[in-house]
Design a protein around this nucleic acid. Structure first.
Length: 581
RNA sequence: CGGAAUGUAGCGCAGCCUGGUAGCGCACCUGCUUCGGGAGCAGGGGGCCGGAGGUUCGAAUCCUCUCAUUCCGACCA
């Protein structure tokens, strides 16, 4: 047994700076507990030190990820964090990616960025090295630090700017091959998150700035999750809110169009205010949102009780950036202050896109493009026309499932811990990554990419596994599997016995932390609970007089008085069982 | 980027309005007692009051600028 190894597993020699008080800037439970348990410390906004305990859990997740990636045939490598701008310009993302991409120059004034992801780098590598179909398929991955200059980092490791990510990239000769690679990764991801002991769902997702043709997100279910996810009550359909669709039932009313009416609505701007003022419900008010799509004004029409899904609009328009227009633009486009925009009698030519829910809607209310004025009994075609009907809204609880007849949609909160994409040829085309097929003909490579947030997975795990006393780690990703608390560490019998148990567990390959500190029992118990070690053996003078020690399970709180041999055997058995993959 | 707030000991905060000796709790150090769920008493160390400029006899406190952080919104694997 290596001496140095045993030394650092003594609490008195180790570094676990726990704190009793909750730091004021932590909001979500995982952030609070990771700070309190001495797992992480903040260095700058969204940038953290990983302290020994936190690092151990991260390494556990990494190890599981490695095993499953290797099992799925992926090959580990390591790419640089700093990337040259020219590659990003070649793929077109230097312009597209936005401020999230941290850019800087070297001493020679050449442009670089901190890599937020590595499609460009890996594709560049492959295009230089792969010539023949015989070299494909291949799937390369790395576990590496990334940087994204998030607008608003928060929640500790959940949304940091610097973070550890596993990213894998598959290269295939054609789409069918890419589908196989994708399916392998999907399956590996399920195994990874199952082994981490997480409750999760795989959902259909938008491809965002990574691009590509289709994707799934792996979402850990947690009320504190930043993402809304949608699932069907009856079938397997699950998607994130950005992507989720519904079967839009046509509005059933066949009301005759009533004459258009202009009404004064002083100070009534929001849908709620207008609806209440006019005595109609929100569904009868159509809201007109003025947006800027790559700087061009666009009007989006939605039923008042629905929310705009900007991703859907962005995808429909095929633009890079979309944002709500400021008051000055609203004034210019509609001729009225914001709050009174409408599609009828617009002063100039502007693109108008309507949500599907407007089809078949009659006699609704819209802004009149004049201050303090709305129009009642507005009807499509008669009063205005649109440039198309598109699904533009977020689904709501109870909407009809788009895939089956009977189901309705349910909404959950989730934390995105993994994301798999079919990229198609987006990057291989842009960077000209091709190969020669069996006929000697030039072909383009089909790609996929697959990410897992390592730190985020640990944080998500804590969101799902904690109580009022602290973290409750599942054994597979616990920083230590067992803690031996030597109460009254000064007494020889206690000291010797706890040492013996510690050594025996170490030799059995158990990751054990010996709490040999000269502290009061309550203090040690509180720390042990806080840092979430799944199993605890307490060696105290009283029980030891009967030749017994106490074995306590962190999660259930179940306590057993056992002989030393029994306790050791039980710890071994419990850990072994938990690690069975 | 829009709105709001906060920077005072390692952490959590008071003091600021009404300018005049920089304080409390936790943590830390020493001693004694205590010892199965974050002990008690006594003593002690630790501060350029985020930074720069200004007003004033005198600024943690008032004014201006700046930097940082946090919250709400928008945005985002």
């Amino acid at each position: 047994m290596c001496k140095s190894r045993t030394t650092v597993m003594r609490y008195s020699q180790y570094f676990i700076p726990t704190v009793k008080e909750t730091p004021s800037d932590a909001e979500v439970i995982s952030h609070k507990l990771m700070l309190r348990a001495g797992m992480i410390r903040r260095l700058a906004a969204g940038i953290y030190n990983y302290l020994p305990l936190g690092l151990r859990s991260i390494r556990k997740v990494e190890a599981i990820v490695r095993e499953e990636m290797n099992r799925a045939g992926a090959i580990e490598m390591l790419m640089p964090a700093v990337q040259p701008a020219e590659l990003w310009k070649e793929s077109g993302r230097w312009e597209f990616y936005g401020k999230e991409l941290l850019r800087f120059k070297d001493r020679k004034d050449n442009e670089f960025c901190m890599g937020p992801t590595h499609e460009e780098v890996v594709t560049d590598l492959i295009r230089k090295e792969v010539r023949s179909y015989r070299q494909l398929p291949i799937n390369l991955y790395q576990i590496q630090g990334k940087f994204r200059d998030e607008i608003r980092p928060r929640f500790g490791l959940m949304r940091g700017r610097e973070f550890i990510m596993k990213d894998a990239y598959s290269f295939d000769v054609n789409e069918a091959g890419a589908d196989v690679s994708y399916a392998k990764m999907y399956k590996a991801y399920r195994r990874i998150f199952e082994r981490c002991g997480l409750k999760f769902r795989a959902v259909e997702a938008d491809t965002g700035s990574i691009g590509g043709t289709s994707s799934h997100e792996f979402m850990v279910l947690a009320d504190s999750g930043e993402d809304a996810i949608v699932s069907c009550s009856a079938c397997e359909y699950a998607a994130n809110m950005e992507k989720a669709e519904t079967r839009n039932a046509p509005a059933c009313e066949h009301a005759d169009p009533r004459p258009l009416e202009r009404v004064t609505t002083p100070g009534q701007k929001s849908v709620e205010e207008v609806a209440a003022f006019l005595g109609v419900n929100g569904a009868q008010v159509v809201k007109t949102l003025v947006l800027l799509a790559d700087g061009e004004p666009v009007l989006a029409l939605l039923r008042g009780d629905y929310d705009l899904n900007e991703i859907k609009l962005k995808n429909h328009l095929g633009c890079a950036e979309i944002e709500m227009a400021g008051d000055d633009v609203v004034q210019k486009v509609t001729g009225a202050p914001s709050g009174y925009a409408g599609p009828v009698g617009l002063p100039g030519k502007v693109k108008v896109v309507a949500d599907l829910s407007l089809q078949g809607l009659h006699n609704f209310v819209v802004g009149a493009n004049a201050a303090d004025t709305h129009l009642k009994n507005v009807n499509l075609e008669r009063d205005f026309s649109v440039d198309g009907f598109v699904d533009l809204r977020n689904v709501v609880l109870g909407d009809a499932c788009p895939r089956c007849e009977s189901g309705t949609l349910e909404i959950w909160r989730g934390i995105e811990v993994g994301h798999v994409f079919k990229l198609g040829t987006k990057y291989s085309k842009a960077l000209k990554a091709g190969y020669l097929d069996a006929d000697g003909k030039e072909q383009i490579i089909y790609m996929g990419c697959y990410g897992i947030g390592i730190g985020r997975t640990v944080a998500a795990c804590i969101e799902q596994n904690h109580d009022e006393n602290g973290i409750i780690f599942p054994i597979p990703i616990a920083p230590f599997q067992c803690i031996v608390s030597a109460l009254s560490a000064k007494e020889d019998a206690v000291k010797e016995t706890s040492e013996a148990i510690y050594q025996e567990l170490l030799e059995a390959g158990i990751e054990v932390l010996l709490d040999d500190r000269d502290e009061r029992p309550g203090f040690k118990f509180k720390d042990a609970d806080l840092i979430g070690i799944p199993l605890r053996i307490v060696v105290g003078a009283k029980n030891l007089a009967d030749g017994r020690v106490e074995l306590k399970e962190r999660r259930s709180g179940a306590v057993e008085l056992l002989t030393i041999a029994e306790a050791v055997a039980k710890v071994k058995a419990t850990v072994k069982e938990a690690l069975q993959a």
